[in-house]
Design a protein around this nucleic acid. Structure first.
Lengths: 338, 338
DNA sequence: AAGGTTTGTGCAAAGCTTTGCAGGTAAAAT
DNA sequence: ATTTTACCTGCAAAGCTTTGCACAAACCTT
């Protein structure tokens, strides 16, 4: 026998009062007799009454659900950001629905529509790598649904974002590689339309300039962010007559792929080639040698994105803010020569 | 200006017909005039009408939302199972809400209650490691909400589960270690109340027996599943006079911690110590040496759990089924001596 | 032409909650 | 004794959809 959830109606019937009286009593409305209020509250407690969120949602036109779209779930970077989002939203009484775009714009569009149809109260997104159109996000704004991007962002003029200073980090890491003896520093990165790609490339170029190195165009490679295609690109790099003596990856995943290829060729890290990546994945300290990487404050990125959503919900309007969080360069064996 | 979502009412008003006519026309009810139906459908299409899920939920007493509770999100094992669940449920028109119990029963209880209050249509769970009481899940059953456990399970008499054959896998892997020369095989595992711990321990003992080894009680260690405590346990193991020459971990995370400790002592894998784990994390092939591990069909585990939920929803009753999926032992460098 | 079908449309209730307003009772004031 | 006041409580609508039932008009039958 299905144990139906208890409703106001049930309590009202039991106590022979009206539904509205029960509703008011439960929120300590001064109009209701104190004794009656106490009795109603006692029964509600005993029967474990919980307001039906569907009814509330219908009434208030809000669902207490925030959508989150990430390129994938299996990367530590994203799962720990989600964990930050969850921490912040949960205590504000919101639920989150997580969707994975699997790095595909098509899937991303589908996710956005699904979530919109579900009537979410807000949306937090990290763009898919091949997301080069913004129409689906404009639609989110049209519906006046609060929107926040993190890490990979777009529509920055209208939408709040949480990012890191990619340019200066990429610059720092490039000069760091130089200081450790590298003179042919390659950068393997992703699709050109992504902000993180643009910014990190810019930082890389600035870094080269600062230490007085010239860019070898063959050493700047745009591929996609998948390990397989990264591996292919790396094989190309390693076969060049001007083989690089350092590789900066747009993220750690790319560098993990790189490591495998390098080991296959019996080259030594860091003796023959220095390596460094972005995002400081959990396994950066598990691989051998340990990987130098830019650590993002993932938990904080999540918390801040969540806070920006909550702010917009409270204000009842779209807000355009840009939060830039600090990163740390974690120098490890893969990029140091003594 | 908030762009309100279009409702049946809006369409009815525009076309000067009643709401019920619109409702019926949209589902091709034969009663409605064909021409009118066409007109209504055209407008609904143009205005991008989507039924309000809150109203539908209230009416049908279902939310189209399935809750998923996992011990953590950052392990590849869980995120890829979630990905399987998502694939299956999405095409059935369900949304999923993911909560992390962070391996804590307290948090798990909280998650269950939250999700129940949200009126989810079903719940898929992998137990937290210190979950040793089932009251909160009994409550789920009381409310007649479909429930499925995977991997770490309980209440098997009443609830559907998706698992692997831990006993035989642990046995196989133990004999495999023996065949590669190990004679002092240790097993480092988790809390005793967990089914996976019990079963893998049983398999380990059976394996020892089969190859004619006696259990050294100091070589069977129950700790918790956190890398830190695992590391502590491993330090103990490595300091024993009867230091093991092989370690079987209850999962890969434990073995990753083990690797670090072993390397700290300048012992060599697999020369001095063989290693093998469970669950074949993504990074099993990234670490050096590559880790031997039992590969779980994670995506399939997810899909099957989802299917069991859908089945129960369709049948309208609780079903007790046990699905045992096949695993594969991926033998790699960490456990082979030539 | 009158009764019987067929065909098409709308009313209203149910699902659950909140809240403005009306109404009722009893006590206080005149 | 009558009016006023204060204090409680309940009705009904709104939020959106589905669906059983009633009703109306037009057609057909005899």
């Amino acid at each position: 026998m299905k144990k139906k959830r208890v409703t106001l109606k049930d309590i009202a019937a039991e106590l022979k009062v009206s539904i509205s009286t029960v509703s008011r009593a439960l929120k300590d409305h001064p109009d209701i007799d104190k004794t009656l209020t106490k009795k109603i509250k006692a029964l509600a407690q005993k029967w474990n009454y919980i307001p039906n969120p569907l009814a509330m949602g219908l009434l208030r036109q809000q669902t207490q659900v925030i959508g989150v779209i990430v390129p994938d779930l299996v990367t530590y970077f994203f799962s720990s950001i989600i964990s930050g989002i969850e921490d912040e939203l949960q205590q504000a009484g919101y639920y989150i629905i997580i969707s994975s775009s699997k790095e595909s714009m098509e899937k991303e569009i589908e996710c956005v529509h699904n979530l919109l149809n579900l009537r979410i109260d807000g949306l937090i997104v990290c763009l898919a790598q091949d997301s080069n159109d913004t129409a689906h996000f404009e639609k989110v704004l049209d519906h006046d649904v609060p929107l926040v991007f993190f890490d990979r962002v777009c529509l920055e003029k209208k939408v709040s974002t949480v990012v890191v200073d990619n340019v200066s980090m990429a610059k720092d890491i490039t000069t760091h590689l130089f200081e450790n003896g590298a003179r042919k520093i390659a950068h393997i990165t992703g699709p050109k339309h992504l902000n993180i790609v643009k910014e990190r490339t810019e930082g890389y170029l600035k870094g080269l300039e600062q230490v007085g190195l010239l860019l070898d165009k063959k050493h700047l490679i745009h591929t996609d962010l998948s390990p397989n295609n990264a591996a292919k690109a790396i094989r190309g790099l390693l076969s060049l007559p001007s083989r690089p003596d350092a590789i900066l990856g747009v993220n750690d995943t790319v560098i993990f792929a790189t490591m495998k290829e390098i080991k296959n060729r019996n080259l030594k890290i860091p003796k023959d080639i220095l390596l460094a990546g972005f995002s400081d994945e959990f396994h950066a300290t598990v691989v051998e040698p340990n990987l130098t990487s830019v650590a993002h404050p993932t938990h904080d990125i999540g918390r801040n994105a969540a806070k920006l959503i909550l702010e917009q919900i409270q204000e009842g309007r779209s807000i355009q803010k840009k939060i830039i969080l600090n990163t740390e360069l974690h120098v490890r064996e893969s990029s140091t020569r003594h």
